[in-house]
Design a binder for these strands. Structure first.
Length: 151
DNA sequence: GCCAACGTTGGC
DNA sequence: GCCAACGTTGGC
């Protein structure tokens, strides 16, 4: 799950009450479908810092509330307002996430791209701008191992 | 339904 | 700040 640290960082999540927060503002249908249909309570996710000095996987989160309507879309004052979404027929969804841990070291995108084992990871595929991307069990384990090895 | 124009993302 | 890669929009 991507976030720009200048907007919302892993440390920001860790500082929240109960270290949980809602992952609002995703406005892409493919990502919406994952939020609404695929992500389940108890699932784990990597927190990725994008659009910053060193884009990197920095930590781990747990999904603590499955997909529900993104109410920011109903708020005309919000930057995430979308007049085409409404409570009767919500267009956008979000999940709640909980801080699990910070990786012992951040894993920079540059490093991830050098790993043959991660060649198929959506994050390193050319041109992928999705804000949420799937990680296979094997990729997940490999990334954890990388973090342990580089600690 | 096609596709050109335009806007956004995000690494570099 | 540049620009590649996409997604969205809207005319037709």
């Amino acid at each position: 799950m991507k976030s720009e640290p200048s907007v919302f960082s892993l440390d920001d999540l860790a500082a929240k009450a109960q270290q949980t927060y809602h992952w609002e503002g995703v406005r892409n249908y493919q990502a919406r479908n994952m939020l609404r249909d695929a992500m389940k309570v108890g699932d784990l996710a990597f927190f990725y810092h994008s659009n910053c000095a060193e884009p990197a996987i920095v930590g781990i989160m747990e999904i603590v509330k499955a997909g529900y309507p993104d109410f920011y879309a109903f708020d005309a004052e919000s930057v995430y307002f979308d007049p085409k979404s409404n409570p009767e027929n919500p267009r956008w969804f979000m999940v709640d996430v909980k801080f699990v841990q910070k990786l012992s070291v951040p894993l920079p995108l540059k490093m991830l791209k050098q790993q043959p084992e991660l060649a198929d990871l959506a994050l390193v595929r050319r041109g992928n701008r999705l804000s949420l991307m799937p990680v296979s069990a094997a990729q997940w384990q490999f990334i954890l191992k990388l973090a342990a090895d580089f600690a």
